[in-house]
């Protein structure tokens, strides 16, 4: 199940990294933390290497405000599965931002553009970004490789605050994936 890295045709604008797009709809009522179940539920939608390829996907996928609750959209660098157990993620963590429904689609777009455009300036630390559509709020998160690196984690927070232009009362929370594994909860 190797996913091919898309070529960048002449005239298109190459991104620093190639990315994969994943979609997940959590089974209603069935609460399971088993890795295999998670892998079964998450579907690879496509991959892109250029700005133009990104927009062609983005303009065709449903936006968060159009999705039913319990859907997740993941955009991860190619080669990194959007799972805690992946080698790129196992020592990592994520910033979690809870958003009102009215602003979540725009915030998600801003987060994606900042990630694809390399606005975080933390080398290869960023793994990917997720939006989780929930009944009363949406949650965006950005994953990085090294949860123990305070300066990287702080820098990601500062960039996130700037690009999302969040109201000052917005709660941001950092969670290491090994903690998520221990307490079996993501948020």
């Amino acid at each position: 199940d190797k996913i091919a890295v898309p070529d960048v045709p002449e005239g298109e604008h190459r991104l620093q990294y190639s990315y994969s797009l994943w979609f997940m709809q959590r089974g209603r009522g069935s609460v399971s933390s088993a890795t295999s179940d998670y892998e079964d539920q998450i579907k690879h939608v496509g991959a892109f290497s250029s700005v133009e390829q990104f927009w062609s996907y983005y303009c065709h996928i449903a936006h968060p405000s159009d999705l039913p609750p319990h859907c997740d959209i993941h955009v991860f660098k190619m080669g990194i599965k959007p799972m805690w157990e992946d080698t790129a993620n196992k020592d990592g963590g994520k910033w979690i931002v809870r958003l009102r429904k009215e602003i979540s689609s725009r915030s998600w777009e801003n987060l994606l553009l900042a990630m694809l455009g390399e606005q975080f300036i933390v080398g290869n630390e960023i793994c990917g970004a997720v939006i989780s559509v929930r009944p009363t709020e949406d949650i965006v998160s950005i994953w990085n490789r090294t949860a123990s690196n305070d300066s990287i984690v702080g820098k990601i927070r500062d960039t996130l605050q700037r690009i999302l232009q969040l109201p000052s009362q917005t709660i941001m929370e950092y969670k290491a994936h090994d903690q998520s594994l221990k307490d079996k909860s993501s948020f």
């Binding site: 005239g11 190459r14 991104l15 700005v51 553009l113 455009g117």
Partner: peptide, 21 residues
Amino acid sequence: GTRIIYDRKMLLQLRDSPYSR
């Protein structure tokens, strides 16, 4: 090495006029 950086405005311009490159 050199990193390929785009700001939000540049990315939005490429969405709005994909053939004006």
